[in-house]
Structures are given as structure tokens and as C-alpha cells.
Deep mutational scan, measured.
Amino acid sequence: EPLWIRPDAPSRCTWQLGRPASESPHHHTAPAKSPKILPDILKKIGDTPMVRINKIGKKFGLKCELLAKCEFFNAGGSVKDRISLRMIEDAERDGTLKPGDTIIEPTSGNTGIGLALAAAVRGYRCIIVMPEKMSSEKVDVLRALGAEIVRTPTNARFDSPESHVGVAWRLKNEIPNSHILDQYRNASNPLAHYDTTADEILQQCDGKLDMLVASVGTGGTITGIARKLKEKCPGCRIIGVDPEGSILAEPEELNQTEQTTYEVEGIGYDFIPTVLDRTVVDKWFKSNDEEAFTFARMLIAQEGLLCGGSAGSTVAVAVKAAQELQEGQRCVVILPDSVRNYMTKFLSDRWMLQKGFLKEEDLTEKKPWWWHLRVQELGLSAPLTVLPTITCGHTIEILREKGFDQAPVVDEAGVILGMVTLGNMLSSLLAGKVQPSDQVGKVIYKQFKQIRLTDTLGRLSHILEMDHFALVVHEQIQYHSTGKSSQRQMVFGVVTAIDLLNFVAAQERDQK
């Protein structure tokens, strides 16, 4: 057995438009009618409502009807409940999964919650491996369901041993009777949507819809739904939504950006999952974080739909894509998950301010006199920076000697690579993860907040409520011999709460 199987392995699926269902090699399930009293909570997966979006479509000038398939009504709160249950049931049916076995899954959280929910009911041990950027709410729900959680670096490539995929496979090879159901490759993922989600949409719309818009992560949702719609409703256009920084969209030119990270969760990847059939997507749109969270908040405030950030991405694209539809036509959007997962993220004004998705003037509360002053007023001194090749031991000596707790790590040209902190280095040394002679590049981390000289002290204040420091950066445009230009970030300084307090105190003292 291989040590790991690539999540982007070539698909062996034989589905073709027009091929009889009787030739399918898979076990198919028909939607079942729910009894009045459910035998367990797993029976509350599927049969989610279709809700008309009344205000947002009109606000953006849509002539067509805009409908939302509300997947956050599933038992675990997301569309991923469907595939989690289906993968477990299919693994039980073919004898792969037996009582007492362990389920391991690399996930952005929602599939993990679905699997942990099913594992709690069915009696399996469950280990979820997820990147650090995923919300604390997801972690809390997983723990409450009895799952064990392993976190991995957000910026690790999918084929790196440190990625959530790599760590999951390492655990599988170490733990007896453990299984990775593997949402990236498992046919049960798109089949769950082909058999149930798509049929529900067709039934709820009486077979009449002209466009379907869905955000894409593993691709199982859009693949399964689109294949069924292509068979039953061939005139329906399928629109895929991919965040900026991901590479799922086609044509490839759409993916060209210097951005590699994004805040919206559960969609987009740096590889093409095996289950994603991009041939059934008629057109791709890219979405960005700001519009995703703005539209998610709009869905909550104006439509009462308590959905997550990827739902915002989907609707932001839908109001663009559906401009081509006329009166009497219908566009369906998939709202994948609930706001429950993001209470401390985009639902929080403070978080939105820190990330730059909300401006101070958007909030009406009274601010102190210094709130709208610029960061450049602080008069920061030149920063202490270190090269990635310097040793951890030497870096600790320098920081202690100069009285700093942290320093930016830059390359020879001064471009920011990340940050090192005294606390992080000492804990890594004590844990045996690094040696004093190791290069400081081994303990770089990139989960820090950046701020510009033109940003306000109010925004800085919000950042420092949650973080010990902020890195002050400025952009530099560099022209190359080819005539092309590129933008790079340079370090201007490091600012802490002490710097802000000293500035405010000094100004008030001078005024007296």
C-alpha cells in the first residue's frame, strides 16, 4: 500500500453525458421521505430548503428570480454533511469501515464536522487534520463531537509532509485500522450531490432553472449537481466560483495573481482535486475576500440567511453572472454553511477592521482624538531585521541585547519573508524542534498583521487588541530589464502597544 495517494490523481470516472444510468458502476440512493420521529440526527441530513432572495437581486438590477439552496440546514450545519454520511455509508457497505475503526480526514473543517457527527452516532474514533487558518468555532464544535484535532501550517503546499493532507496520511500509516475516506478522491463525494442535492433542486424548481452558481473546494458539490442538471435540464448554465489565490478556475489566465492566501474558508485549493470535473462548468468567476464577507453580511442583514463567507462569494458572483438572465428565468445559488463557524471572524466588526474589510468610518461609535491620525505620526525608528541564514542562537542574543521581542526576517534585497519572535524561538528550542545552530528560517511564521503608514491609529489599535505587534510595510514598484514591473513589500518598522501608548501619553502631556 502506498504511503500516500495524491489528492489530485487523474480521475478514473467514466461518467458521460447521455450515458444510461443503468451502466453506472456505483451504488445510487434515492431521496427517502422522513418519518415524523427521526431514529437519529443523521436522518436530518439532506432535504434542505430552497429560499427566495428578495432584496439583493433587485438591489443589483437582476431581472431573474434568485433562489438560495440553504445547505446550513443540514444536521452539522453545512453541505459537507451529505458527503460525510455518504462516504461512511459506502465504506461500511463495501466492508472497508468496521466497528471500532478510526476515521482520519484532512479538511478545512466542515467535512470534519460532518464526519465527527456521523462518527459520534456510529461509534468510530475520528481524527481531523486541518490548517491553522480555520476558525476556532470549527475546532470547538469538533472537540465537542469527540474528534481529535491536529493543526497544520496554512501556507504548507498540499504535497508537503507538513500539509493537512501529508499529516493525515502519516497518521494513517501509524494508526492500525485507520482510514482516510479522502473527500478529494472519493466518488461518494460527487455521488452524494448527484443522487440527492441535484434531485432536490430539480424537484423544488419543478425542473425549471436557467443558471446554477456554486463555490468550489473539493469540487464534489458542483460536479455532482452539474452532471445531473446537464442530464435533466441541459439549458442550465453552470457557474463556478473560485477565490483569488486558488488555481481551480479555467482558463488558467484567471488564476494569475501574486496573491497566495485568502481568508474565506472551505473553497479554493492549490491543486485540482480528483473529484472535480471542470468540463461540466460553463464559466468560472474569481471572487475576493472583501466581496465575500460584504455579501455574507448582506445576506444575514437583508435576507435573514445566517450563512458563512463562501455563501457571500457565491452570491457576489451570482449578481454578476445572472445579469444575462431575463424576467421569468431563474438562478439558484448554493449557500454551503452557517455563520456559526465564523462568529469571531467576519461577523465581528473588530475582525473586519483588522483585516481591512471594514473602515473605521463605517462604525458610528465615538472615537478618541488620536483615532484618525496616521501611523506615520508615530515617528517610528528604523527596524531591526535579520536574514533567514542567521542562526536561532545568534538571533536570540541580538533580540535580548537590543531589547526586542520580535524581528522581521528579510532577504538580501529587503523583501519581507516573515517574522521571528523570542517566545516562538525559545519554545521551539525547548520542544526540540530546532537547535541553536539551525537557521532562523526554520522558525519563520507568517501569521502576523501588516499595516501601512497611511493607515489610521484606530486601525492599529484594533490590531493591537488581539496581537502583540504589527509590521509596518510599504510597497515598492521595481522595474526589470524586460520592461515588466513587480510590486514588493518592504519593512518600514515594527509597532507595539507600548509605542502607541507612549505616543498618546506624550501628545497629551505636551497639550497640557
Rank of each mutant, 00 (worst) to 15 (best):
K283I: 07
V440T: 05
Q507P: 10
G493E: 11
H474R: 07
K433V: 12
S486A: 07
D282Y: 11
L325E: 02
E475Y: 09
A292N: 03
E365K: 13
T261E: 11
G441E: 11
P243G: 03
G240R: 02
S461Q: 09
D337C: 01
E290S: 14
T279C: 15
Q354F: 08
Q511P: 05
N288Q: 14
N502Q: 14
V386E: 09
I398C: 03
G240W: 03
Y262W: 06
G240M: 00
S428D: 12
E290Q: 13
I272C: 08
L464Y: 08
L457A: 02
V504E: 09
R488T: 12
P408T: 03
E265N: 02
D405G: 06
W351Q: 00
K433F: 15
G441A: 14
Y262V: 05
I498Q: 03
F503R: 13
E508D: 13
E361A: 06
P436K: 13
L378I: 03
E360N: 12
I463V: 15
D362F: 14
P251E: 05
V317L: 11
D289C: 03
P388G: 14
S348R: 11
T344E: 07
I272E: 05
K283F: 09
W351L: 02
R330H: 14
V264Q: 04
D282T: 09
R488S: 12
A322H: 01
S486Y: 13
I272L: 07
V319H: 04
V315H: 05
Y479T: 13
W351P: 05
P436I: 15
L501N: 05
H462L: 14
L299W: 03
V332G: 00
G308W: 02
I334N: 04
S428P: 14
A292Y: 04
V275C: 07
R330N: 13
L353M: 15
V386F: 10
E475S: 04
T344Q: 07
G483H: 08
I444H: 11
A470M: 05
M298K: 14
R340H: 02
L254I: 05
S338V: 07
S313E: 07
G268H: 02
Y445E: 05
K446Q: 12
K345M: 03
F293I: 03
L335G: 01
L299K: 03
I238N: 02
F285E: 08
V241G: 13
E250C: 08
P273D: 00
R278Q: 05
A292V: 07
L429K: 09
L417A: 07
T385S: 10
D349S: 08
F271Q: 00
R488F: 14
M490E: 12
V409E: 08
L464V: 15
V495N: 08
Y269R: 02
I390N: 14
T344R: 07
K355N: 11
R488M: 15
R374W: 10
V473R: 10
V434K: 11
L363Y: 04
G268T: 01
K283T: 03
L335I: 04
E265Q: 05
I416Q: 04
L422W: 09
T395D: 09
S246K: 03
C307R: 04
Q259H: 13
D411I: 12
G414K: 09
R509L: 15
S338G: 10
E475L: 14
E303F: 03
T257N: 14
V280S: 15
F295A: 03
V491H: 09
L500A: 15
I444T: 11
G418Y: 07
S313L: 01
Q354L: 14
D270G: 05
T454Y: 12
T395Q: 09
E397L: 12
V332L: 14
I416Y: 10
I239C: 03
V420Q: 13
I396C: 11
D499T: 06
I238D: 05
K286H: 00
I247K: 09
Q435E: 14
I444R: 14
F357V: 01
Y262L: 03
I239L: 03
V420A: 13
E290R: 04
A292C: 09
N502A: 13
L457I: 15
K402Y: 07
L276N: 01
Q329F: 08
D362S: 05
L248R: 00
G328C: 12
D411C: 15
S246W: 00
G393S: 15
G328R: 15
L276T: 02
K355P: 02
Q259P: 14
T454V: 15
A505D: 14
V434E: 10
L299D: 03
S381W: 12
Q487W: 10
A296V: 04
A431F: 02
K433P: 03
V275A: 08
T364G: 11
G418K: 07
K355T: 03
V332K: 00
N288H: 06
T274K: 05
E360A: 14
T421K: 14
Y445H: 08
R340K: 08
